[in-house]
């Protein structure tokens, strides 16, 4: 159709995009108001988690007032929980471990996903067959149940929780990486690299992987959100590290009293929601920035 038939002459904009894709993506990202808002919110949360405990030195586990004091009363902005602990202090101190579990679990997810996906997509043949079967195997197991089993058997701590989340959620990353590798390995610059006899490891890690980065970054951002939700879900099932304050821990200990006191569960949940929302807005923004053509969606 006429509309799509553009003249085949070199276009300045296209040239910029090819030469400086990251700058182009950043410029696109900046224009996306929702994504910028997400970035600002997430940065603030990270700042608060780092500076909050310094500004309000306190023991988050210590009772600070009457039990289940409603928000706004007796100087407790967000109220106290069933052991008289200040919810606001709990949120401030809990943010660090929640963010840490989110980041660590996402890092594990992405690492396993890249390893499996890259090897399957690059080597094809029996390697791919075996790795795909393993991926399918992990897709058959309900992720939360498997994580529950792992955390229960090896007792809940920040490390086991991060590991468990990483182990159960890498499959979609692996599929994504494999698809990217299958596509990129057929491109001319990869073929050229192979023709001059480069080692496979070099082609995989320094030639193909950087070119698969854009969708991977988006996927990594989204896995951070998934991991935070996961940690909260495990905590809701009483599987959280009892020695470390986290948002999930606040939910798990205060859950039995929800009908008498809504605030000790509501505020941590809200904090989780806002954090995951900001991560997801950033992810969407990155996605749009890397795929300008899909922006209509």
């Amino acid at each position: 159709m006429m509309i799509s038939d553009k003249p085949a002459r070199p276009d300045k904009q296209v040239a910029i995009q090819v030469e400086r894709p990251w700058l182009e993506a950043w410029n696109m990202f900046k224009k996306n108001r929702a994504a910028v808002a997400g970035l600002i919110i997430l940065s603030s949360i990270i700042m608060i988690s780092l500076l909050g405990p310094l500004a309000f030195p306190a023991d988050p586990f210590a009772g600070a007032g009457p039990l289940l004091s409603p928000p706004g009363e007796r100087g407790f902005l967000l109220g106290t929980d069933q052991q008289g602990r200040d919810i606001l202090v709990g949120l401030l101190y809990g943010s660090q471990s929640t963010l840490m579990v989110g980041a660590a679990a996402a890092a594990i997810t992405i690492t396993i996903g890249i390893l499996v996906g890259a090897l399957a997509g690059y080597y094809r043949g029996w390697v791919e067959e075996v790795l795909l079967r393993i991926t399918e195997f992990f897709q058959v197991l309900p992720p939360l149940l498997l994580a529950m089993v792992v955390v229960l058997l090896f007792s809940p701590s920040i490390v086991t929780i991060s590991l468990a989340i990483g182990i159960v959620s890498w499959t979609s990353t692996a599929r994504l990486v494999r698809a990217e590798f299958l596509r990129i390995r057929e491109l001319d610059f990869v073929k050229a690299e192979r023709a001059i006899g480069s080692r496979n490891a070099r082609i995989i890690w320094t030639i193909i992987l950087p070119n698969a980065a854009p969708p991977l970054i988006v996927s990594a951002a989204l896995s951070v959100g998934v991991a935070i939700l996961f940690e909260a879900g495990l905590a809701f099932l009483q599987l959280s590290d009892p020695n470390v304050m986290s948002w999930g821990y606040l939910i798990s200990v205060n859950r039995p009293q929800i009908l008498e006191a809504w605030w000790p569960v509501t505020f941590p949940g809200l904090a989780i929601f806002i954090t995951v929302l900001s991560v997801s807005l950033i992810g969407d923004g990155l996605n749009d920035a890397f795929n300008p053509k899909l922006r209509q969606r």
Partner: peptide, 22 residues
Amino acid sequence: ALLGYALPVFWTGIMLVILFAS
């Protein structure tokens, strides 16, 4: 879709319980 992704499902449930229980 954004909300569906970002809301912890148990938390949504708890909010509904609070809403509908009392």
